[in-house]
Design a protein around this nucleic acid. Structure first.
Lengths: 107, 107
DNA sequence: TCCATGCTTCAATTGTTATTGAAATATCGA
DNA sequence: TCGATATTTCAATAACAATTGAAGCATGGA
């Protein structure tokens, strides 16, 4: 993942509604949620939601699939990981620095 | 860490220069770097750098200390971790989802 | 085929952010 | 004390992002 894509992903997450959407989808898992459910769960107007989903999709943080007349969105876990990896890469010259923080992060 | 602080931190990182600054400081470790060194390393003008450091400081992603006439900045690792924790919290309802990703992230 | 539902697109408005150069402040060494 | 170095502040400009409501486009059921 290149630096430009990382900035795009961070910018996509750096917004109240989108951060809430992304987290909801992360917690929901691969089965995802329809646009309608997301909007309802978070109190976001349809056109506004659509705008935000487009940003998240462009940043490759979520994927969508059509299911009859619903659009189902789900989190893209790989992008999330590449993001985290980028931020922490080669931390402290690779020297031991935070032994307490290496617990399992993904179940 | 509250959601508002998370958005602030993400917004601080969602910018080319600041992401580069933060990464440089993460890789440098606790000893940190002076403002001048950072600007020189990344080709950022002093006033612009100062603006960005203020953003990163406000977001608690970096800390600074005065050392004679230099200002030394260093990454705030705790904030970085809280950020990562927030994004991945309760991933997939807590069900196993990505066993391959649990390798140590911090040396 | 027609209507209702689910979602997206568009245009306008408003607010926020980055960059620049010049000026200010503060510390150090001669 | 004076000049040089290190950094921050300020004001102006230009670019970008979020929200709203109305209109558009599919899909599915009566």
């Amino acid at each position: 993942m290149e630096r430009k894509s990382i900035v795009t992903a961070l910018a996509a997450l750096a917004q109240d509604s989108r951060l809430a959407i992304f987290r909801l989808l992360v917690q929901t898992g691969p089965e995802g949620l329809s646009a309608g459910k997301i909007g309802e769960a978070l109190g976001i107007a349809p056109s506004s939601l659509s705008f935000h989903m487009k940003e998240l999709t462009y940043a490759k943080l979520v994927s969508s699939r059509q299911e009859s007349r619903y659009v189902i969105y789900s989190a893209n876990f790989q992008t999330m990981n590449e993001l985290i990896g980028f931020l922490t890469e080669n931390c402290c010259h690779g020297q031991p620095c935070m032994p307490a923080l290496s617990e399992e992060r993904f179940p």
